[in-house]
Amino acid sequence: NITNLCPFDEVFNATRFASVYAWNRKRISNCVADYSVLYNFAPFFAFKCYGVSPTKLNDLCFTNVYADSFVIRGNEVSQIAPGQTGNIADYNYKLPDDFTGCVIAWNSNKLDSKVGGNYNYLYRLFRKSNLKPFERDISTEIYQAGNKPCNGVAGFNCYFPLRSYGFRPTYGVGHQPYRVVVLSFELLHAPATVCGPKKST
């Protein structure tokens, strides 16, 4: 009989979020998941679920829940969905086509923008091939755009693969920082350890 609540607040209220190319993952297990707390949290810009209804989450049990978190621009949030393409979905964070879970995003301009620009948040701009679902690539190898080998030196046709967002408070909404948490639900042939409040007695 599990009684402790799942530590969703640790994920959602973290002081610093990860850059999207180096997205953070927390495994959540052996706890009671009260999703209504999240669902009623006012400032969400997006709360979209795939393969599961957000209002039914509290009735369900899962083997594991993974909480992935990172920061992207407002106009990139739409790429955090199954079957998407674009710089983020291709080179930074890719969801599987059969994704079961929820994508939760909110504007973090007050936290993550600075006058003069916040350059701490990076994304991958160049990559030889697209990421596989949930693949994480933190390499900083110089990207070779031409035929000539770069030998690890940036220059003509040789690019550092990461780019900084440089968030400023005055940017338009599409270019403002958004914090994103992706909850993915794993249902294995194993005992369920993460259940909603109704199922955990």
Rank of each mutant, 00 (worst) to 15 (best):
Ile142Phe: 07
Val11Phe: 07
Arg27Met: 10
Ile104Gly: 05
Pro43Cys: 05
Ser19Gln: 05
Glu186Thr: 11
Gln84Val: 11
Val153Gly: 12
Asp112Arg: 03
Lys26Trp: 07
Phe160Met: 14
Ala89Asn: 04
Cys195His: 11
Val194Asn: 12
Pro169Tyr: 05
Pro177Cys: 02
Gln144Cys: 04
Val11Leu: 08
Gly74Thr: 01
Thr193Val: 11
Asp9Tyr: 13
Cys6Phe: 06
Gly101Ala: 01
Gln79Arg: 05
Pro133His: 07
Gly117Asn: 03
Asn107His: 04
Gly172Thr: 00
Thr15Met: 08
Tyr39Thr: 14
Val32Ala: 08
Asn40Lys: 15
Pro82Arg: 04
Leu5Gln: 14
Thr170Cys: 03
Phe45Trp: 15
Asn151Gly: 14
Tyr171Lys: 00
Thr170Arg: 04
Val20Asp: 00
Gly166Gln: 07
Asp9Leu: 14
Gln144Gly: 07
Asp112Lys: 02
Asn24Ile: 07
Gly51His: 11
Pro191Val: 10
Arg179Leu: 00
Ile104Ala: 08
Phe8Leu: 12
Arg179Val: 00
Pro149Ala: 13
Asp59Ile: 07
Ile104Pro: 00
Gly152Trp: 06
Val52Arg: 05
Ala33Phe: 15
Arg179Lys: 04
Ala81His: 05
His189Arg: 13
Cys102Leu: 06
Cys150Ser: 01
Ile138Val: 15
Phe99Glu: 00
Tyr123Met: 15
Ile28Tyr: 15
Thr55Leu: 13
Asn151Gln: 12
Gly196Ser: 12
Ala192Tyr: 14
Gly166Trp: 04
Ala154Glu: 15
Val65Met: 14
Lys128Ala: 12
Thr140Cys: 09
Gly174Ala: 10
Tyr119Arg: 07
Arg168Ser: 02
Asn1Cys: 07
Phe41Arg: 12
Leu162Val: 15
Ile80Thr: 02
Val115Lys: 12
Ser36Met: 08
Val153Ala: 15
Gly117His: 03
Phe62Ser: 08
Pro133Met: 05
Asp98His: 12
Tyr121Phe: 11
Ser29Thr: 14
Ile88His: 02
Leu57Thr: 06
Gly152Met: 10
Tyr165Asn: 01
Gly74Cys: 03
Ser184Ala: 09
Asn109His: 06
Asn75Thr: 11
Arg25Ile: 02
Ser129Lys: 14
Leu38Met: 11
Cys158Ala: 02
Thr193Trp: 11
Tyr35Arg: 08
Asn1Leu: 08
Asp90Gly: 09
Val77Gln: 05
Val77Ser: 00
Ser139Ile: 05
Ala89Phe: 03
Glu186Val: 08
Val181Phe: 04
Ala89Glu: 00
Asn64Gln: 12
Ile2Leu: 14
Cys102Lys: 02
Asn13Trp: 05
Cys150Arg: 03
Gly83Ile: 05
Arg163Phe: 15
Gly146Cys: 03
Cys158Phe: 02
Ser53Gly: 09
Tyr143Ser: 02
Gly146Gln: 02
Thr63Asn: 12
Cys150Gln: 00
Tyr39Met: 14
Gln84Met: 13
Leu125Gly: 15
Trp23Gln: 01
Gln79Thr: 04
Cys49Phe: 05
Gly172Glu: 00
Cys49Ile: 02
Ala22Ser: 12
Asn1Glu: 12
Cys31Ile: 05
Pro133Thr: 06
Leu111Trp: 13
Phe99Trp: 11
His175Arg: 01
Gly74Pro: 01
Gly146His: 05
Val71Gly: 01
Ala67Phe: 07
Thr100Gly: 05
Leu57Val: 08
Asp9Arg: 12
Asn151Ser: 12
Asn109Leu: 06
Tyr21Leu: 05
Val103Trp: 01
Phe47Ile: 12
Tyr93Val: 02
Ala154Asp: 11
Glu141Ser: 11
Ser78Trp: 08
Ile80Glu: 00
Lys199Gly: 14
Val180Pro: 00
Asp97Gly: 10
Asn13Phe: 08
Ser69Ala: 07
Ala105His: 09
Val32Cys: 10
Pro169Glu: 04
Tyr165Ser: 01
Ser108Asn: 04
Asp34Met: 06
Asn118Thr: 06
Cys102Asn: 03
Arg127Val: 01
Ile142Gln: 05
Leu38Asp: 02
Gly116His: 10
Asp68Trp: 03
Phe126Pro: 05
Asn120Arg: 11
Thr170His: 04
Gly146Ile: 02
Asn4Lys: 14
Ile88Asn: 01
Tyr171Asp: 00
Gly172Leu: 00
Phe8Glu: 02
Lys114Leu: 10
Tyr178Asn: 06
